[in-house]
Design a protein around this nucleic acid. Structure first.
Length: 421
RNA sequence: GGAGAGGUGGCCGAGUGGCCGAAGGCGACGGUUUGCUAAACCGUUGUACGGGCUAAUACCCGUACCGGGGGUUCAAAUCCCCCCCUCUCCGCCA
């Protein structure tokens, strides 16, 4: 959420920022409501001051045994008037909040303005691997090696679900454990295993609600949502809390299944497992001091990259343009791994700095050494998303005779296995 | 799922209708004392919002806040209703 005071005092800046994000939100409407709310507040607070004063006097009179029935009757009417205005204040406040929750974050200065076409490749690691044969797409490899069962997955759950089997399941598990261990042991993250179902407040805190409701699975009877990423439970872990400055920065790493309806992308990436409704992901979440957040952002990107480097997978880093960033992000890098079987780059991580946008929604603050309170900055990155990493391993590590050469770093996690065949 | 107990400031804990933004304690901060540290003593110490005055998030005024929401009342931390959460016991159960 943006700071209403900031909007009030920097209307032009706010409008420009929102335009870069392609937001159609009407700031003038918010400002109008805000002004009305403040007028009502001013009016009702004076009345309340009167009420408090007279009530006190009545209490004293009564204790002296004086008759206060006449005054009481007057005050009853007065209190009702206050109640009426209070109701209007409340109504206006709710209107403002409802709109404010739909206002996206505004991009950082360093973000290129524009749409997807203006995304910039800022880094490439290694080169596309040369094959002296035609690399197969992962769905063919999966079928040949009996690693993933697409057919039975759709039988038991529907299209867009996968079942890992045998060495496929082992590889999936190995990747998860490998990633967790690297982040815990080498990058200083503390592991968290969160619930996969969260309430509406949590979904609102990180910015999935209200705008992305159609993309989420929910258990309506219980008022719960299936998490689309561990970012949601992990960030909201500290909702409503105040850190000490010494607690920061705080790094969490979390494995979770992720559930996404992928509404609006029907017909896209239907083959194989590039886009599925449930996938595994290792997520990195940081809580940091505002002045440190951009430095932390670069470090975070590096932490996610490490995984692909250790796996020996060629990738590129894209700095997203303002219009291609997610709702809550102020700056975002995508990491895209190369998939030779599909001949395309697949997004395996979004590495975002949300500044205080999520912290404001979820009310996550810190107490500075001088006693003042302020919102923390939150950041997160996939570290990294599984099915596409799984795809990249299969397609990049396939041999001419149809085996998968297990990357060195994964072998300890697979009982020393060298080849999947 | 059933029964009971509870939810008050950074923390502990008192408070059953007005004199309560809230005793007391701890902690923190400032000071006195001290060779240094500790102890002791004195003082200060919630947040948000609105307004005034501003260089100011400094100061002044007001309002709200005792788990959340509603109600009763001239007046609610306190009484009533609903909900959430925690703990204990019982039941069920991976």
């Amino acid at each position: 959420m943006l700071d209403l005071k900031f909007i009030r005092e920097n209307v032009k800046k706010a409008k420009e920022g929102l335009k870069k994000k392609n937001s159609k939100v009407d700031l003038d409407e918010i400002l109008k409501l805000d002004e009305r709310r403040r007028e009502l507040l001013k009016e009702v607070e004076v009345m309340k001051a009167d009420r408090n004063r007279i009530s006190k006097e009545l209490g004293i009179s009564k204790s002296k045994g004086e008759d206060i029935s006449q005054k009481s009757a007057e005050m009853k009417a007065f209190s009702q008037k206050i109640k009426d205005i209070d109701f209007k204040v409340e109504e206006t406040t709710q209107n403002i909040n409802a709109i404010m929750l739909t206002v996206p974050n505004i991009p950082n200065e360093a973000v290129p303005v524009g749409s997807e076409a203006n995304n910039k490749t800022v880094k490439e690691w290694e080169k596309k691997k040369n094959f002296n044969f035609k690399p197969l797409p992962h769905w063919e490899l999966c079928e040949k090696l009996d690693m993933v069962d697409f057919k039975r997955a759709s039988k038991i759950s529907g299209a867009g679900f996968v079942v890992f089997k045998g060495k496929g399941a082992l590889l999936e598990r190995a990747l998860i454990n490998f990633m967790l261990d690297v982040h815990i042991r080498e990058h200083g993250y503390k592991e968290v295993v969160p619930p996969f179902l969260v309430n509406e407040a949590s979904m609102t805190g990180t910015g999935q609600l209200p705008n992305l409701k159609e993309d989420m699975y929910s258990v309506d009877k219980e008022g719960l949502y299936l998490i689309p990423t561990a970012e949601v439970p992990v960030t909201n872990l500290y909702a409503g809390e105040i850190f000490s400055e010494e607690d920061l920065p705080l790094y969490h790493v979390s494995f979770s299944a992720c559930f996404r309806k992928e509404a609006g992308s029907y017909g896209k990436d239907t083959r194989g497992m590039k886009r599925v409704h449930q996938f595994d992901k290792v997520e990195l979440v940081k809580f940091v001091l505002p002045e440190a957040s951009y430095e932390e952002h670069e470090k975070l990107l590096g932490d996610a990259e490490t995984i692909l480097q250790k796996l020996g997978l060629h990738y590129r880093v894209r700095l997203l343009a303002s219009g291609d960033m997610s709702f809550a992000a102020a700056k975002c890098y995508d990491i895209e791994v190369y998939s030779p079987g599909c001949n395309e780059y697949l997004e395996v991580s979004s590495c975002s700095n949300f500044e205080d946008f999520q912290a404001r929604r979820a009310n996550i603050r810190y107490r500075a050494r001088d006693g003042k309170r302020a919102y923390v900055h939150t950041l997160n990155a996939s570290g990294i998303a599984l099915p596409r990493t799984f795809i990249a391993v299969l397609e990049n590590c396939q041999t001419e005779d149809g085996k998968i050469a297990v990357p060195d770093v994964l072998r300890p996690y697979m009982g020393g296995l060298e080849y999947i065949d």
